[in-house]
Design a binder for these strands. Structure first.
Lengths: 219, 219
DNA sequence: GTCTATAATTTGATAGAC
DNA sequence: GTCTATCAAATTATAGAC
């Protein structure tokens, strides 16, 4: 409560060492999980001694919380809502496809991002606030921006934009989980473009735009 | 390879103790994760001594693998494909709603199931085969049964039943993840019935059944 | 402020009694 | 087959030198 800028960190600390410790801790925690990580390895990865780590962070749990809070906030999640900035000049199909590709690009073949999300899910049992922070700062902003876009889009005629946004997100996240997190690409294969095509198609089934209107729907 | 019935278990072992150890290990691993679990606690939870644990399983990793293989196989996942057994006598809306409710019932307010899936995701980085086994024995059978149902359903007129099945599963799993695994019910609230209604609605948008045909679609 | 060295405990795994 | 007792290594955290 006294140092709101750097919670769990000791006052008068050098910003360079703080960053070095957080960076080293990030690498080890991502690789080994919370319980599998030792303070010795964090100190070695950070290039400092173990007492230095303890002088900057009260204990292992405090370091983990500080690190995770920073990662949840500072990851480039904020870029996704900006997929909609040009939305008035582009068709909804273009905008939604760009968002889907950006979300998948952010995770597919990006082992660090996958490992981070795996850590959040894996530790959210013993660190419930970590899970909540992820939903608050990552999932909710994207859901809200997408819902707002779907609701305000002129040609789409969606009955429930909020549920549609959950469906859109869930379909993509499920692909990431089965293929990347659980290594099931070869067990339940699915082309990402095929899944995106399907989502775009589904979201335009009730389209009332004069251009593509009602043509192949009535017969 | 020599004892295919109980892999990682030593020969001539009493089935009762094997079950007791697996049961105790399950409780501790679910609560503490892999690295957070000690063989002492497993022995205590199983009501046997530590050397007994080691006489039944070669080491911690072998015990974990044996336990997880059993859990992935023996959970009551197989019940979901049976949601389709009466499918020819019921409307697709009834069948799909029952499946969605069964999937959500299996996880919502079921902390053991949630903890198990969290463990699978959390440890699939260091135990890739665990992730693959989960996809193979849990996700794939449900996906295939649902895809087959969607493709063979008379009234539904889906362009891509396979992608539709992924969308259906993903929408539900995403709700489970955000609400249950990440504790975000209050951050991104969503009524489960509203989400199910949306899925049913979406999957029937291309319906060509004479009963509910084309009425509110053309205008 | 940062280090070396170490305390106090816990860990995975085993020897040997019965 | 199962236990008590124990090992060697690793772990969190700190005392004290500089």
């Amino acid at each position: 409560m006294e140092s709101p800028k750097t919670p769990n960190a000791i006052r008068h600390a050098s910003p360079e060492k703080t960053a070095a410790i957080l960076d080293g801790a990030m690498r080890v925690f991502l690789e080994q999980g919370y319980a599998g990580t030792t303070m010795d390895r964090i100190a070695a990865a950070a290039g400092v001694s173990k007492p230095t780590v303890y002088s900057y962070f009260h204990d292992k749990e405090g370091l983990f919380n500080a690190l995770m809070e920073q990662m949840v906030r500072e990851k480039q999640w904020a870029k996704f809502p900006q997929d909609f900035v040009l939305s008035t000049q582009e068709s909804s199909k273009v905008v939604l496809r760009r968002l889907a590709n950006d979300i998948l690009d952010n995770c597919m073949n990006n082992s660090e991002q996958i490992t981070f999300i795996r850590l959040v899910i894996g530790e959210s049992g013993r660190f419930p606030e970590l899970g909540r922070a992820f939903v608050q700062h990552v999932e909710k902003p994207i859901q809200e921006a997408l819902t707002h876009y779907l609701a305000s889009c002129p040609n789409l005629n969606l009955r429930d934009p909020t549920a549609s946004a959950r469906m859109f997100m869930g379909t993509l996240i499920y692909l990431i989980i089965t293929h990347e997190m659980l290594h099931g690409q070869d067990i339940v294969p699915m082309e990402r473009d095929r899944l995106i095509d399907h989502l775009i198609y589904i979201l335009h089934l009730s389209e009332k735009n004069p251009d593509t209107q009602q043509i192949n729907k009535c017969l």
